[in-house]
């Protein structure tokens, strides 16, 4: 059912179950495409739940935009079933982003040094890999992101 995401004073309710079920349908396929097992984009050192509560909303907002702007839309596949599932997750993330805007409008999404620094690290892990390889790895790490969100 719905779960509460605690991002400092910003509290969102989101449907983990549906997103996770959709991810489980593509997990095997997408992770099998990722041949670089020896590195990670979402590293434990940048985990969402370990960030200061006051900066969690900003960090999460960056992560959400990262997936919406650079991952979902650039993932290429000829498999329509996979494409539908990615679309479903992307549209669900859009719903979360809309909720997050309410926090933004109520000035609960302060961006400090820690959020910016950690997001920069994640972006550099992503940009170390070349185009589609990076997109595939980021998509395959959605269960890491979902787990971070759950542990906030």
């Amino acid at each position: 059912g719905l779960k509460r995401l605690h991002l400092g004073s910003c509290v969102l309710s989101m449907n983990f179950q549906e997103i996770r079920n959709e991810f489980l349908e593509i997990k095997g396929y997408v992770q099998a495409e990722d041949e670089n097992l020896d590195n990670r984009i979402l590293k434990s050192s940048e985990a969402l739940q370990d960030i200061k509560p006051t900066e969690r909303c900003c960090f999460f907002h960056h992560l959400l935009r990262f997936y919406l702007d650079r991952v979902f839309k650039n993932y290429q596949t000829s498999n329509y079933h996979i494409r539908r599932k990615v679309s479903s997750i992307a549209n669900s993330f859009l719903g979360i982003k809309r909720e997050l805007r309410l926090c933004h409008d109520h000035l609960m999404c302060h961006c400090g040094e820690e959020a910016k620094e950690k997001y920069t690290h994640i972006l550099s892990h992503f940009e170390e890999l070349d185009g589609q390889k990076a997109v595939v790895k980021a998509l395959g790490e959605l269960d890491i992101l979902l787990r971070w969100m759950e542990r906030t």
């Binding site: 919406l68 839309k73 329509y80 079933h81 494409r83 679309s87 992307a90 859009l94």
Partner: peptide, 17 residues
């Protein structure tokens, strides 16, 4: 197409299941 397809992927369409 969902909202994502309309605003993020220049209005692509996906064949129905």
């Amino acid at each position: 197409q969902g909202e994502y397809e309309r605003y993020y992927t220049s209005s692509t369409w996906i064949p129905s299941s």
